[in-house]
Nucleic acid binder design. Structure first.
Length: 217
DNA sequence: GCATTAACCACAG
DNA sequence: CTGTGGTTAATGC
């Protein structure tokens, strides 16, 4: 935790861009910035709410405990809000967030000025999740893995080569399959020279084919 | 039936 | 944690 200056923040949220000086003072006195190391829990399911978390830098997985195992709901890159972890009315988190990289987060005591931005964020998430669940229910595993790789490459890292932030097991939790299946698909893709793996580093060699696989399912 | 897909188990590195 | 092989269950042709 450290002192911070929301007005001078270079990674201001869209909501914060509309605030006046007085409102910035309110924001600063009602928020706190915290750093997290890779693997640290930012907020935890079943714990009391820490209000809204704004992911300033880093990469985070948002996940929920399922009847059998943990399910990764999404993987998000800064800057973004981490959603509203509680239901209205209670203050118990319904899901968790864990840092996949070193990360800094601002916890904000919610006030009216942020409501609009938060709603926009929630709508985007809802749409994104609907699309994801449609995909998941209709595609086979290679399609889902391909889609995940493309998503990482295009949306998270914006690079065809990147350091894969998830373990095989976590990819399984994300797309709803077993770690073994993820393993096998990845080695298949590697054997077919569609991707290249070096430890945790992954390069996409044949993006067109990968897109085909992700679309065909 | 036979083939395919994928989950579960187990063991090795 | 990861990779692999054997086994099993469900599904499709």
């Amino acid at each position: 935790m450290k002192n911070h200056n929301c007005k001078e923040c270079l990674i201001k949220s869209a909501a914060a861009k509309n605030l006046n000086n007085e409102e910035f003072e309110i924001l600063e006195s009602n928020s706190v910035q915290v750093s997290f190391k890779k693997g640290e829990v930012i907020f935890k399911q079943d714990a009391l709410s820490l209000n809204v978390a704004y992911l300033k830098t880093g990469l985070v997985k948002v996940h929920m405990r399922g009847p059998v195992r943990e399910k990764i709901l999404r993987v998000v890159r800064a800057p973004t809000y981490l959603g509203i972890p509680t239901t209205f009315g209670d203050k118990i988190n319904q899901f968790s967030a864990t840092a996949l990289e070193d990360t800094s987060v601002c916890f904000i005591d919610t006030n009216g000025k942020f409501a609009y931005e938060i709603i926009v964020e929630l709508c985007k998430n809802e749409l994104f999740d609907y699309q994801k669940y449609v995909s998941m229910s209709q595609k086979q595993i290679p399609g889902m893995v391909a889609e995940t790789l493309l998503c990482m490459s295009d949306r998270i890292f914006e690079n065809s080569r990147f350091n894969f932030p998830l373990t095989r097991g976590e990819v399984g939790d994300l797309i709803g399959t077993s770690r073994e299946s993820v393993s096998r698909v990845l080695t298949d893709l590697s054997n077919e020279k569609i991707i290249e793996m070096n430890g945790s580093e992954i390069s996409i060699l044949n993006k067109e084919l990968l897109i085909q696989i992700s679309e065909k399912g």
